[in-house]
């Protein structure tokens, strides 16, 4: 084996892949949130639709987005592969009494369930992408006007979805899973990179709490806002996507 593949397939190399892809995905979450918060702008969707058009049309962003998909897949499959490997390492006989003590209660509980949380998040992503991204790709979304230019009316599509309680519920569940995943994942990524120092690790853990709370809460606020605060849609347009009515 060549040194590079050996490095990446070693236990620490595999963790490194998880760490770097994870950190990249967190940075994406921040950017994505900034855009999505425009759904809460009370302008009938113009800002959001403009943003969506820019995101899908710009070639640089497009390239980055393919990188993003690759990262998601790498993170998910590497994670699942590790999970299987770790189950095997545990041996066939399991402990009768199961308890796990760790340095931090929440992070430790999350750490034990990273694979489950990750799978939940992956399932959420499939639903999420199927409902919006796929709908856009297949041009099942009607057009709207974005400051004089035509654009797909993703806003109305989102609005329609988030007026269905089970969609909102699915998002809430997804975000709870994300919160726990982030709480452990963030500090874990730094630990894997070797960034553990008595002076700075408390700050990393603090940041992990902030990220784990702020990002999912802000994301969850969008469907909740649309479900509770916005008026019922008078006419529901015909559109595709898995939750299309």
């Amino acid at each position: 084996m060549n040194w590079f593949t050996k490095f990446l397939t070693s236990s620490i190399g595999q963790k490194l892949v998880m760490s770097l892809t994870g950190l990249f995905l967190i940075s994406f979450l921040v950017v994505h949130l900034a855009g999505n918060l425009q759904l809460m702008a009370d302008d009938g969707g113009v800002a959001f639709n403009t943003y969506a058009k820019f995101m899908t049309g710009n070639p640089v962003i497009k390239t980055i987005s393919y990188g993003l998909y690759a990262m998601i897949l790498l993170h998910a499959f590497q994670g699942l592969a590790l999970w299987f490997k770790n189950r095997k390492a545990r041996g066939s006989e399991k402990y009768a009494v199961k308890v796990t003590r760790g340095a931090d209660g929440v992070a430790t509980s999350a750490a034990k369930q990273m694979a489950v949380l990750g799978t939940l998040i992956l399932a959420f992503l499939l639903i999420h992408m199927g409902d919006f991204w796929w709908a856009m790709k297949t041009e099942a979304v009607p057009m709207a006007d974005c400051g004089g230019e035509p654009c797909q009316d993703l806003y109305t599509k989102v609005y329609a979805s988030f007026k269905q309680w089970w969609v909102v519920a699915a998002y809430i569940v997804g975000m709870i899973a994300l919160a726990f995943h982030l709480r452990h994942g963030f500090w874990s990524a730094f630990q894997t990179l070797g960034w553990n120092h008595p002076k700075y690790t408390p700050a990393i853990n603090g940041a992990a709490w902030v990220i784990a709370l702020v990002l999912p809460v802000a994301y969850a606020a969008i469907p909740l806002y649309m479900y509770f605060a916005l008026p019922e849609m008078t006419t529901v347009p015909e559109m595709g996507g898995i939750f299309g009515s």
């Binding site: 236990s11 963790k15 390492a89 340095a103 931090d104 452990h184 874990s188 630990q191 894997t192």
Partner: peptide
């Protein structure tokens, strides 16, 4: 390398070891 060959699992920073 030897640790991996022995078939130990991959660390996911649970920290149960330290505790």
């Amino acid at each position: 390398n030897q640790m991996d060959e022995e078939g130990f699992g991959r660390c996911s920073n649970v920290t149960a070891c330290e505790a």
